[in-house]
Amino acid sequence: MGNERAGEVAGADAIDARLAARLAELRTERGWSLGELAERSGVSRSTLSRAERAEISPTAALLNRLCGVYGRTMSRLLSEVEAEPVQVVRAAEQRIWEDRASGFVRRSVSPPDAGLRGELVEGRLAAGADIAYDRPPVPGLEQHIWVLDGALEVTAQGATHELAAGDCLRLRVWGPTRFRSPGPEEARYVLAVILP
């Protein structure tokens, strides 16, 4: 079991390194300095620098801000650090990304393909976890949130939706959103994301 965990950590480190390189590429492609990106994203220059050098593993909130600046969904950004697109991704091979600070685990269910507009993501929020996004990565993003287990509160456009297992919320995201797992168990849900 120790070797399996070590392999998972090594895999996570490799993804963080590729993600860091891609973040640096995106900024360079636009000809922006770290200072310009900091102004556009609202993220400190030092945090951006550390993320681009893979000194830190970016949080979901940080990636969301950067995706907003770069006009990408989080899944698209993460798929850009993958190799050739495939049509089938077996459950054991689906990419898992964890934001330990917030208690959020994200599994990319759909095979990665930056050229397609829709994707499925499995999200898990620990009981009591609360994640707030100040803006969508792409304005007008369509989301379908289908709760599989537990309860989930989703706040968007000034309204809070209390969802139980089996409930599905469909919305377009234009402004801030908040995902909260009120407990007592974790919330597990499917998020379908469709680019406008």
Results as ranks from 00 to 15, higher is better:
residue 1 M to N: 15
residue 2 G to W: 13
residue 4 E to K: 11
residue 5 R to E: 15
residue 6 A to Y: 14
residue 10 A to G: 10
residue 14 A to K: 12
residue 18 R to K: 03
residue 19 L to D: 05
residue 21 A to Q: 01
residue 22 R to Q: 08
residue 24 A to P: 07
residue 27 R to G: 09
residue 30 R to H: 10
residue 32 W to F: 12
residue 33 S to I: 10
residue 34 L to E: 11
residue 37 L to K: 00
residue 37 L to Q: 11
residue 41 S to N: 02
residue 42 G to F: 01
residue 42 G to Y: 10
residue 42 G to I: 04
residue 44 S to N: 08
residue 45 R to T: 06
residue 47 T to S: 15
residue 48 L to F: 12
residue 49 S to P: 00
residue 50 R to N: 11
residue 53 R to H: 14
residue 57 S to L: 03
residue 57 S to R: 01
residue 61 A to V: 14
residue 62 L to P: 09
residue 63 L to P: 10
residue 66 L to M: 07
residue 69 V to G: 08
residue 72 R to W: 08
residue 72 R to E: 14
residue 73 T to V: 02
residue 77 L to Y: 00
residue 77 L to G: 01
residue 83 A to W: 06
residue 84 E to C: 09
residue 85 P to C: 10
residue 96 I to P: 04
residue 97 W to F: 11
residue 100 R to L: 08
residue 101 A to V: 08
residue 102 S to D: 06
residue 103 G to V: 01
residue 103 G to L: 04
residue 104 F to T: 02
residue 104 F to K: 12
residue 104 F to G: 06
residue 104 F to V: 13
residue 105 V to A: 15
residue 105 V to M: 12
residue 106 R to D: 14
residue 106 R to H: 04
residue 106 R to F: 14
residue 111 P to G: 02
residue 113 D to H: 09
residue 123 G to K: 08
residue 124 R to F: 06
residue 126 A to F: 02
residue 126 A to Y: 03
residue 127 A to L: 04
residue 128 G to S: 12
residue 133 Y to T: 06
residue 135 R to M: 09
residue 136 P to Q: 05
residue 148 L to Y: 13
residue 148 L to C: 05
residue 150 G to T: 01
residue 152 L to V: 02
residue 155 T to G: 00
residue 157 Q to A: 14
residue 157 Q to H: 10
residue 157 Q to Y: 13
residue 157 Q to C: 10
residue 159 A to I: 09
residue 159 A to F: 15
residue 163 L to A: 05
residue 163 L to G: 06
residue 165 A to P: 07
residue 166 G to M: 03
residue 168 C to Y: 07
residue 175 G to E: 02
residue 179 F to G: 00
residue 180 R to P: 01
residue 181 S to H: 01
residue 187 A to S: 04
residue 192 A to R: 07
residue 193 V to A: 11
